[in-house]
Each structure stands twice: as C-alpha cells, then as structure tokens.
C-alpha cells in the first residue's frame, strides 16, 4: 500500500502539474475522497486533473484526477449513480449539451486542454469518439451510418475512398461479412449486437484517438457481448479505450487498468489484475466481492 510511487510517476510524466493534491498519498487512512492506487501513468493520452462536475448545485464528481494511457483499455466500475458515466461524458464534452452541467478542473488530450477556449468541441469529438449504452444507429442505410462522420468532417475526397473507409471500418468492427451485401439497407433492421458493432464502426470511421464506451453491452445478450469484448481487445492495439461497465467480469476480461468510483469520487485505480485480486481500499473490496452495488 505504498502509494508514494504515484507521486513520482506524476512528476516524471507531467512536469508542470506540480500542484497535484499533496494529500493524495500521505494519508493512509482510507477515507472516501482520496484516490489510492496508480491514477497516473507514464505515457498518458488523456489526463484529468481535479475534475469536479456539477449539475446545477448538485456535485456529481468530486476532485477526480486520472490518466488514460496510450493504447490501453481503462474500465470504470462502480455502483449506479457513482458518476462514472458523468466522468466519461466530460471527457468528450458531451455534457455541454446539458445546460445546467458545469465542469471545473482540467482535462487534456495529448497535452491540450479540452475545455480551453481554443479547443473546438467538434474537432474534439472527432478525436474522442463515443459509443453509447443503447445502440443508436441513424435511421439511414448501413453505408450512410458509417459514411456520416467522414462526410461531415470532410475527411474523404472521392467516393472510392469513402467506400474503402466504410469497408475498413466495418471490417475492424467485425461486421463486414455480415452486412457487405446489404449496405444500402436501413441500419435499424440489424440485430442489437450488430447495431452496437455498427455504432463502433461508425465511431472508428473518423479514426479517433480515444474511444469512450458507456456500458456498450448492457442492452446485449451474452453472445453479442462476447463479440464486442473481442472487438475491444482487437481495437486496443490502435486505440485508447475508456469503458464504463456494470459488469465486473467484463471489466476484468477487457481492461488493462480499472478505476473504481464511489459516490462521485474516484476511490481506487490500478492494474485490473490487482484491483480484482488484492484491492487496497475497503470500498473497492466490498464492491468487487459483491457486498454492495
């Protein structure tokens, strides 16, 4: 339970962030509100520092600092209402659409502050894609669903190039063989699992750096879930993935690191193996052993 290592890693990886909360590692009393484990990594793609999220007066996220490493799969677990989805949505500013939502602290993508004035939210979302809980294909053809992102961002010049993008995206999402003969048919006619893979294909069609997944399998059956989990493993070779899940088995299966949230606070972060075998925090242990949640 030597949490001082964390500090070293922070200082080596992110020099200027010297104003890190110094209480983080010094207090060994396991109080809610102080993250234990390795919240920071050496090669972060995204960094969140002291993030607070408010819905009007209600605070949903309390002082969360967390790194998402390059090409790693980070899973976020925790009981309902713990703020893991809220935190995920802050990472690509989906919370902007909610008027009463306010985010403070800093979140950076490759060193750029995403809440900075100079950061365009549209280009941010082109770099940080998102897959939602319920499969939400557009009521258009399969082809148009995938082509939508490249089209609105003007990523392709020619039709042939677009065809290639569509095929590659569908292949990467493991959907190509199933739909190659009916690309012009409505995406809403696909099964739930296929729709979710279509949504993943749609997201990778704009080649984002980070893919956020908000309980992507909660509306799917076990077979479709297994298929998506395989896909996540394949995608993690090229993409940075943050996934929110209610299934601890899923978190254990797919992720490299796991973050445990409780009542809006980040309780513990660490390598997935460690979190699920020997968690440092009492709350984490209670949760993963099924004592609540």
């Amino acid at each position: 339970m030597d949490t001082t290592f964390k500090h070293t890693s922070v200082e080596t990886s992110t020099g200027p962030v010297a104003s890190e909360p110094t209480t983080l590692g010094t207090d060994l009393e396991q109080e809610v509100g102080e993250t234990v484990g390795d919240a920071f990594v050496d090669d972060p793609r995204m960094k969140a520092r002291n993030v607070d999220v408010f819905y009007a007066d209600k605070q949903a996220i309390h002082n969360v600092s967390l790194d998402i490493g390059r090409n790693e799969v980070l899973s976020m677990i925790g009981p309902s209402g713990c703020g893991k989805s809220t935190f995920l949505r802050s990472i690509n500013r989906m919370n902007d659409t909610i008027d009463i939502c306010k985010v403070t602290g800093s979140i950076t993508l490759d060193g750029e502050d995403i809440y900075d004035r100079s950061m365009d939210v549209v280009s941010l979302r082109a770099r940080v894609g998102m897959v939602f809980q319920k499969p939400n294909p557009f009521p258009k053809s399969i082809y148009d669903n995938i082509a939508y992102g490249p089209r609105i961002h003007g990523l392709v010049e020619r039709r042939a190039e677009l065809d290639e993008v569509v095929e590659t995206s569908l292949r990467k999402a493991g959907l190509w063989e199933e739909v190659k003969d009916r690309l012009d048919q409505p995406a809403t006619g696909l099964s739930g699992g296929q729709q979710q893979r279509l949504c993943i294909a749609r997201t990778i069609a704009i080649s984002p750096e980070v893919i956020l997944m908000d309980e992507p399998c909660s509306a799917l059956d076990p077979i479709a879930t297994a298929r998506i989990e395989e896909l996540i493993a394949e995608l993690s070779e090229n993409y940075t993935i943050a996934i929110v899940t209610h299934s601890m088995q899923q978190a254990a299966r797919v992720s490299d690191r796991t973050a445990y949230f409780h009542l809006g606070k980040l309780i513990e972060v660490g390598a997935t193996d460690k979190i699920f075998t020997s968690p440092d925090h009492k709350l984490t242990e209670d949760y993963i052993t099924g004592r609540f949640g």
Binding site: R125, K134, F138, R202
Partner: peptide, 23 residues
C-alpha cells in the same frame, strides 16, 4: 425525436446545426 439520435450525431462531432438539419 429520440435523444439517442441527437447523442449519436453529437458524439460523432456533428455541430448543433448539422444535428438539427440532418437528424
């Protein structure tokens, strides 16, 4: 119009105007 469609388009990086006009 279901919010999931708006979210999908917003999440893809569509601007407010594009979300409204295209979806």
């Amino acid at each position: 119009v279901p919010p999931s469609i708006r979210e999908a388009a917003t999440g893809m990086g569509a601007s407010k105007m594009q979300v409204v006009l295209q979806h």
